[in-house]
Design a protein around this nucleic acid. Sequence first.
DNA 1: TTGAAAGCGCTACCAC
DNA 2: GTGGTAGCGCTTTCAA
Lengths: 351, 351
Amino acid sequence: MRDVAEAAGVSSMTVSNVLAGRSNVSEETRRRVLEVVERTGYRVNTAAQSLRRGRTGIIGLAVPEVDSHYFGLLASRLITRLASEGLRVVVEQTGASREGELAAITTSRVSAYDGLVLSAVGLDPDAVASLAGDLPVVVLGERQDVRRFDHVEMANTAGAAAVTRLLLDRGCRRLVALGMPDAEPLGDDDEDDDDRSGERTPGAQRPSDAFRLRALGVHRAVAEVPGARVTGLPALRSSLAAGAALAREALARDPDLDGLVCATDALAIGALRALADAGRRVPHDVLVTGFDDVEDAAYTVPSLTSVSPGHDVIVEETARLLLRRMADRGAPPESVVSPFVVVERESTQRS
Amino acid sequence: MRDVAEAAGVSSMTVSNVLAGRSNVSEETRRRVLEVVERTGYRVNTAAQSLRRGRTGIIGLAVPEVDSHYFGLLASRLITRLASEGLRVVVEQTGASREGELAAITTSRVSAYDGLVLSAVGLDPDAVASLAGDLPVVVLGERQDVRRFDHVEMANTAGAAAVTRLLLDRGCRRLVALGMPDAEPLGDDDEDDDDRSGERTPGAQRPSDAFRLRALGVHRAVAEVPGARVTGLPALRSSLAAGAALAREALARDPDLDGLVCATDALAIGALRALADAGRRVPHDVLVTGFDDVEDAAYTVPSLTSVSPGHDVIVEETARLLLRRMADRGAPPESVVSPFVVVERESTQRS
DNA sequence: TTGAAAGCGCTACCAC
DNA sequence: GTGGTAGCGCTTTCAA
């Protein structure tokens, strides 16, 4: 910068002012400086800038994996949204494993970020808190830590209940909640109740909170209909392979099942494949639903009925909460629930 | 760091040595320092570290979009691979538009990276070169800039030719090259020939080099079989929606087509949907193939025959070339072609 | 094995 | 409108 300043016959301070777009520079000077910058190909040193300003302009986004329909969608939109604020996004893959999470987001990495978005991370609140320190954090999709962090939640329970009711309305009575636990480890908590301290088993592999909340919705909807029953078949990961494997297991346990409520679209797409292999026709023999409304849901054969969790709202609120907290660390934590819509497609339309 | 040093009764230099794991510290001192670090929750300031070391530890990855089957897979693997080298990855979404690319990767952002991986970026060589400056760059998937940058290439032409031959072997004679241009804008270049300077039209929206190379393979394979013919139907983006739209258009143009060679799996999956809508059975009436061998290809109904471009090799070579160049900027640019395998699935198996 | 000195490149603050 | 000064927090170098 000093070199540029000398070449332009000004001080480095003026160069800084020009490059930062500050308005206290004469048009004449500005032109001269920019000309030299152009000619020399000079670029500000981001590290020095970060050091001096105390901000890096980088946001960490922790997801189980980028290579998944849902998280790819989320990452893509969040990157675009935050780019419009001049923020870059580093993607941390936690690998969905309890152990991997702490390791993936070591304290040393976190210190490089101006903020952190944690999606579907099953860490216990204290670990996240100690990890984050003073860092702005927005938690996505789960409902834990509600009181401590800003939080954007999907309508997990209500959405799952709604899509389950759709299956029941279509006549399904022997359901399988694919990817969702059978019991209700949340107790009889209402969805608004988040006092679950002491219940967590650190290090244990369990379905995520999101899946348990969706399970809750399924069970509630089924309980409303006499004669209907549902069996849970929990998954630790959401993947096509897991969906296919679980669907095979479901068929083995109950060959007469007539509806599959899947915890995610990825699981549902895997399940569609396994059902085809088993010679079951969808929706003729079995109805199938997903959750997330990823792009693929509209393109499978048959296309997949799904719960659309309001991606736009989720991304917009996440950005808003993050920016708000970056501006004011003392603000009281806020919690937002995104609205959902059930999108019906071929997989639940009995001819 | 000075505070920690004082509390531990040493100099800040010793704290630095302990935290960096340098071996010139006595066990006793190390313990004492670590105890204070633990107790105070101190974390090194990454910005200062970067400024002093001259490295940020961040790699930029420019892809058209993360939310795509192929780029999600690539990003995921590359993030994991580079994490094992202590490098973080910032994802830059170029949006696949010619204009977006320059804007997305502005020079100021690039200076924050220790290296850059450019995937499927259609910028012309000079723009990339001027953008990159002295930065280590690895170009992926395209074949342009071969001489100027390190470069990892898929077997685009050979892979497309192989999968086309498979369709021809199965008896297809009226093919559509879905997503690929009709003409051969590469001229009669052989794939090894990369002298194409002067041919580019900056600012124009055109199929990527990868798609044009795949088109070349398709046309070559078809030319080998008398009576066979193929029509190109170019795409500017690879997406499910584009695949469905193009397949509809293909059917409108030639209702008797019997084979669809698609430029990517995403296009192929969209095409499968459109074929189902049109009442065409795959593989009974029409055979379909993709390219990329993403996870979904094995789970569609029918499952999708595809060209597997050797993801492992691509990621590993990308990491190798990048690290090599970071260590030695003067090394001569290297070019690597990843081997391919055609994975046959239901979509091309005539009963 | 430890530490003092020097400075990486930038910008907030204030004086002119 | 412009620029001097004074660090931001760390690590490389070299001396003790």
